[in-house]
Write a protein that binds this DNA or RNA. Sequence first.
DNA 1: TGAGTTATGATACACGGTGTATCATAACTT
DNA 2: AAGTTATGATACACCGTGTATCATAACTCA
Lengths: 197, 197
Amino acid sequence: MSTDPRIRRSREQLRQALASLLQEVSYESLSIRDITARAQVGYATYFRHYSDKDALLMDLLTDSIERLQALLPPGVDATPAEEGAVIFEHMAQSHHIYSILLHGEGTQRILDEIRAVAVGEVIRHFQARPDSQVPLEVAATHLVDSLIALTRWWLLSGMPYSPQRMGQFYAVLVAEPVRSFLEPRPVALAAQPPAGR
Amino acid sequence: MSTDPRIRRSREQLRQALASLLQEVSYESLSIRDITARAQVGYATYFRHYSDKDALLMDLLTDSIERLQALLPPGVDATPAEEGAVIFEHMAQSHHIYSILLHGEGTQRILDEIRAVAVGEVIRHFQARPDSQVPLEVAATHLVDSLIALTRWWLLSGMPYSPQRMGQFYAVLVAEPVRSFLEPRPVALAAQPPAGR
DNA sequence: TGAGTTATGATACACGGTGTATCATAACTT
DNA sequence: AAGTTATGATACACCGTGTATCATAACTCA
């Protein structure tokens, strides 16, 4: 599906137009007309592919985030600082697009989606320790929100510390304190999942 | 100044109109025309008092935040959990307005202002410990951002825990870990400030 | 009380962005 | 080659913003 070269071309032109315009002006100040003009694509054509301005941005962001997920295989035994460094490294590589996400005016909804997915992942992989003072949901939300906030501050400030250093800050300020309330869920030992097809 | 009853009346009508409309619909979906209609005030009159929609919201928020600041005298010796409970208590009282601030689409800029002031306050009252692994600015930003994020999550979730409980979460997840990197600045001992009038 | 000042309401306006509709044409598929 | 489908161009209705104007009402101060 969507193998029609005209469709792929239009979408690619629009994606690249947005990416290139974002290096010049703010996301909020861009109109859809601006994007279609740069993309050399008809104005009406835009709405044949994306419902609104956010949809195109989300399209770009999805790519970056999938790349980030690939960097974080679930069962790793990396230290929090190492894991954090990987994340901040990735953020630095795609800092243009993440800056828009984290500092933009109209990107709250998109960020909320991403946040929810990330919190879900944490909950899927961790559980509250028996004597934890903090519910799982609260700790997971805090973990994700703090990482986002740290990244946000870092990008906004022009990345004044190395990704490795940021990974350490994340580890000592966020991950290690949270680890005293959460522990990894025991992995399913056997290869065969119980049932449920 | 601004003692003219007509001015006070217009502003008060607008403030109350926004406050009452926010109980019914989202901030983003409100137009200035909606506000002036509810306020029984001419459309053009709005711009004689507020430059745009955010300015009126900021006006409302300023009141709430001043009330919060009054609750947090600088030199208190409360525990982090107690201090947190006071903050969450206040948030609960004015949860309507803070929900708009923390979850709204067009309130990023306002929230940034507030965040910056709060970080400045933390920096004014704390300093990095000699052996701290984390710079003062990073720790202060993390402290503020995490508190905002916790509050945001709490309000969005319908305040599922008591303010006291939230204060504890804040203490163990944020404040206490940060305190291992920051310490209160030594207070100026004498009553006479040095010079500089 | 009365004269001067000023905020107001009503209205009109220019501007800019969004999203839909239409239609001839070009690009694709089979 | 015939049929399908995406495209560009264009026009349009809609809505919100912020400014301008002006007669009128509300206020201040003497």
